[in-house]
C-alpha cells in the first residue's frame, strides 16, 4: 500500500457519548477497490465508526480522509458532494416509510436529477432484481415488507447510484442463509465490478470471509487486530480467537457478567 493514497484513511478517531468512550483513537487505512470487514462485539462502536467516517456523527478528535481529502476541512456543500460518492446500508435499513419501494431505491438518482421519474422507476426495478426482489413489490411501502426484504431494499438503495464507496452495516443479519450468501455475492460483485471500496460490518464469520479482503476487530474503542480476512479464524490474537469462535471464556468480558 506504500506510496498509494488509501481511499479511506482514519487517524486518531475519537468519540465519546457522555462519559462513555466509544472510539478511542482509531487508525485505519483502506486501499481503493478493496473491502474491509469490521467485526466486534455488540455495542463496541462499529456503527458509530461508520457514521463518523460519513460525517453523520462529528468525531471529538481525529481525521477522516476520503481520497486524500480531510473531511473536516470541507464546507457544507463540498462535504455533501463528497458524501454523494458513498452508498450506505443502515443496520435497520432506514427506508423512507412515506415513499414506495421503487422511490426509495431510486431516491439518490432522483435527488441528483439525472433521470426522469419513469426512468428512475425502471432503474429501481432493475436494481431490485439484483437483490432478488420482483417488480411486484416496487409499488409497496416499506411497512408492508418483511425485515429481510427491507434489508435487501436498503441494499438496492445503497448500490443504485453505483457509488465509489460502500458501507454495509450488518448486510446479512436477518436474512436466511441462502439469501445471505446471495447478498454476500452481490456485495463482492459490486466491489469488483464497480471497483468500489467497501467497509462491511458483520457478525457472521462465513460472511466476513466471503466479503472481505481484509478484516479488523474493534474492541475497547480501538482496532485490536487487522489482517487478511482469510486469517480471521486463525489470527493468533486471543481477542479475535474468542470472538470468531464464540467462546464464553477468554479475555473479552461481556458486560452482562457484571
Amino acid at each position: 500500500m506504500s506510496g498509494v493514497v488509501p481511499m479511506i484513511r482514519l487517524r486518531g478517531l475519537t468519540k465519546a457519548f457522555g462519559d462513555k468512550q466509544v472510539l478511542a483513537g482509531i487508525d485505519l487505512d483502506i486501499a481503493a477497490g478493496t473491502s474491509l470487514v469490521v467485526i466486534g462485539g455488540s455495542g463496541s462502536g462499529k456503527s458509530v465508526l461508520i457514521k463518523c467516517i460519513l460525517g453523520l456523527i462529528t468525531p471529538d478528535a481525529g481525521v477522516v480522509e476520503i481520497d486524500g481529502v480531510a473531511m473536516h476541512t470541507l464546507s457544507g456543500r463540498a462535504r455533501e458532494k463528497a458524501r454523494a460518492r458513498v452508498g450506505m446500508l443502515f443496520q435497520n435499513a432506514a427506508l423512507f416509510d412515506s415513499l414506495p419501494v421503487w422511490e426509495n431505491v431510486a431516491f439518490g438518482l432522483l435527488a441528483r436529477h439525472q433521470v426522469t421519474r419513469r426512468q428512475a422507476r425502471a432503474a429501481a426495478i432493475e436494481v431490485l432484481a439484483q437483490v432478488g426482489l420482483g417488480a411486484d413489490i416496487a409499488g409497496l411501502y416499506p411497512a408492508e415488507l418483511s425485515g429481510g426484504m427491507q434489508k435487501r431494499v436498503g441494499l438496492a438503495r445503497a448500490i443504485a447510484a453505483r457509488p465509489d464507496i460502500l458501507f454495509f452495516d450488518e448486510p446479512t443479519t436477518g436474512l436466511d442463509p441462502i439469501m445471505g450468501a446471495v447478498i454476500d455475492g452481490l456485495i463482492v460483485d459490486c466491489v469488483k465490478r464497480l471497483g468500489s471500496t467497501a467497509i462491511a460490518i458483520t457478525h457472521d464469520m462465513a460472511s466476513a470471509r466471503r466479503i472481505g479482503d481484509r478484516a479488523a476487530m474493534l474492541y475497547g474503542g480501538q482496532i485490536v487486530w487487522q489482517g487478511a480476512a482469510t486469517d480471521l479464524m486463525a489470527s493468533g490474537n486471543p481477542l479475535v480467537d474468542q470472538f470468531t469462535h464464540g467462546r464464553r471464556e477468554g479475555p473479552i468480558q461481556m458486560e452482562t457478567r457484571r
Binding site: L54, L56, E80, R83, A84, V86, A94, D97
Partner: peptide
Amino acid sequence: TMRVTDQIDALATLST
C-alpha cells in the same frame, strides 16, 4: 421517527 430510525441520516447519504 425519521430521526430515531436513521432515515434522516439516510437522506444525507443520498445527496439530499
